[in-house]
């Protein structure tokens, strides 16, 4: 059952505390994405990035952070593009419950 989520004008969660795995699935559905193992791994890593640096990463730092933590195979924009089209940094941060990345086109 869907819960009503409070979103900002970019469609990101207004309050990070509202995030849950179910909320993530709802947010993903709004981007026509069905979440699998590969998605969750990135989502949790994004949340760790935000917790640690207090930032929502745009593409370059996100790719670099993923390469450092999950290996070079996954730390590539083409891999992220397949998981979170059409704009991985924006879409993945939205599903992870983070604010929209700044400096993100």
């Amino acid at each position: 059952m869907s819960k009503i989520l409070l979103l900002d004008s970019d469609g990101h969660l207004e309050h990070l505390e509202d995030w849950s795995e179910q909320a993530a699935q709802q947010l993903a559905a709004s981007e026509n994405i069905e979440l699998g193992e590969a998605h969750w791994e990135i989502i949790y890593l994004l949340q760790e990035f935000h917790q640690r640096f207090q930032l929502s990463p745009p593409m370059r730092p996100l790719v670099k952070y993923i390469a450092q933590n999950l290996g070079k195979e996954k730390g590539r924009s083409i891999y992220l593009m397949q998981l979170f089209p059409p704009s991985p940094a924006r879409v993945a941060s939205k599903i992870a419950g983070l604010p929209r990345p700044e400096n993100c086109l």
Partner: peptide, 13 residues
């Protein structure tokens, strides 16, 4: 936290 944000600088090249 400024120091936490600044520690991300290497990831931003």
């Amino acid at each position: 936290n400024q120091a936490a944000m600044a520690s991300a600088l290497p990831l931003y090249d």
